[in-house]
Amino acid sequence: MKFLKRNTVKMLAGAIVAMSLGVSAPFAQDSVSAAQDAIDSIEPVLSYDTAYNLQLAIQKYEAIAAAGGWEPISRGSYGLKLGKSQGHVRGIRRRLMASGDLDPNLRLSDEFDADVDAAVRLFQARHGLRLTGVLDQETFITMNVPVQEKLNQLRLNQARVQELVPALADQYIVVNIPAASIEAVSNGTVERRHTAIVGRIDRPTPILQSKVHQINFNPYWHVPKSIIRRDIIKYMNDDPQYLANFRIKIYDGNGEELEPSSVDWKTEEAVQYSFRQEPGAENSMGHVKINFHNKHAVYLHDTPQKSLFGQNRRFHSSGCVRVDDVDQLVSWLLQSNGEWDQNAVDAAFESGERLDVSIKNPVPIITTYITAWANREGVVSFREDIYQYDAQGRVALASD
């Protein structure tokens, strides 16, 4: 995990609070790292303090709304970036000043200077956008979301957090679906933060609470019936060598292996059989599967598709959650087992051998849906309502 530079965060996040009060505050020279540092807090997205921090954020956005909110930025602002100079920049400056991303004591010039560049990147960081500094399409659309909508989002998420905090333990894992992020928390502090791949819109990651109880090193992948029906049949019709190429075997009800050629791929016959992918480089589980009891048959796991972690929108799975730097999360989970340090975990990965390890002290896991949160420094973050739970006004999300 990239832990924040505490002084930088205090300066930048403090700047946000100061700006909302009309007080000038300095920005870091490196606008990219400063913007990222402002949100990479050691504070969890879900904790006992989060509800209080959200209440302060609500008060801040109520004050913004009472002052008239912010005006939409004009279409002429689209595509503007550092070095540009034109009248539309004034609208960008006013918008960023209103939300506290830009010092309101700066003059309203037509110049897209370093101050505006830093403010745009800070806005992008707070909203989970690419830190380009450019008024690209996503940034343009997000800046034009009315303050009242942001305020409603904060209130809804405060209610969600208040429902969840009674279930928190001293140590737990949170999968925040809208942020496609995982936090490993101990004693109120984020000890590890991981980029994740979560369920796409038509195959959402379920909301649940459970405990991580087992690690499968170099696992088999038992293909879910839903994936056989939705994907495997199609792939085999497109390429009859698909199963062979990915080392997936078919078994009947008696455990006897079948030849792919014996299955009628023009029908749904395949759904009645079991499909198992062998351990190895092609395995969809990668080197490890992290198990927790739930009725949805979902889990955390490694993946051979590492490039997906570099994407901004990481909603690609069929419900399970893929974890970047998963070996470090496994080591964290196995702390209570004693002998499983980072070297032991890495050695198990490299061996390629099947091994199941029970966790001596199962760790609580919560998969949840938090689209707005704040830290004690006053930095308020938002994420897209990818599953439309905010639009539905859902507070009490289904749990396992």
Rank of each mutant, 00 (worst) to 15 (best):
M11D: 03
Y52Q: 09
W70L: 08
Q305G: 07
V288P: 00
S261C: 02
K10T: 06
F112P: 00
Q328R: 14
E259V: 00
A169Y: 02
S399L: 12
R247V: 01
A67P: 06
R192S: 10
V174N: 03
F3H: 07
S210M: 08
L80P: 00
E268R: 13
S358Q: 14
S85V: 03
R230N: 15
T50C: 07
H88D: 15
G286N: 06
N237T: 03
L164W: 10
L4E: 10
L46F: 06
K234F: 10
Q158A: 07
V223E: 05
K81S: 14
F27E: 01
L258A: 05
D390I: 00
L333M: 13
E282F: 10
V165I: 15
Y299P: 00
T368S: 12
R121C: 00
T303H: 09
L258N: 05
P26L: 15
D385N: 03
I370T: 06
Q392R: 15
P146C: 11
G128N: 04
V326K: 04
S274F: 04
A344C: 02
S317Q: 09
S381T: 10
I141G: 02
W221Q: 05
S210Y: 03
S24M: 06
V120S: 02
N361C: 09
A66Y: 13
A38F: 01
R121N: 01
L208V: 03
F349E: 11
A63Q: 14
G79N: 10
A114Q: 04
V395A: 12
V9Y: 09
S77T: 08
Y220L: 04
M97F: 14
E350S: 11
G286S: 09
V32I: 14
D385M: 01
L151A: 08
R93G: 01
Q137R: 12
N187Y: 10
S33W: 10
S351K: 10
S399E: 14
E384V: 11
L329D: 13
V212F: 05
E259L: 07
Y61F: 15
E149F: 07
E268V: 00
D325L: 05
R230Y: 11
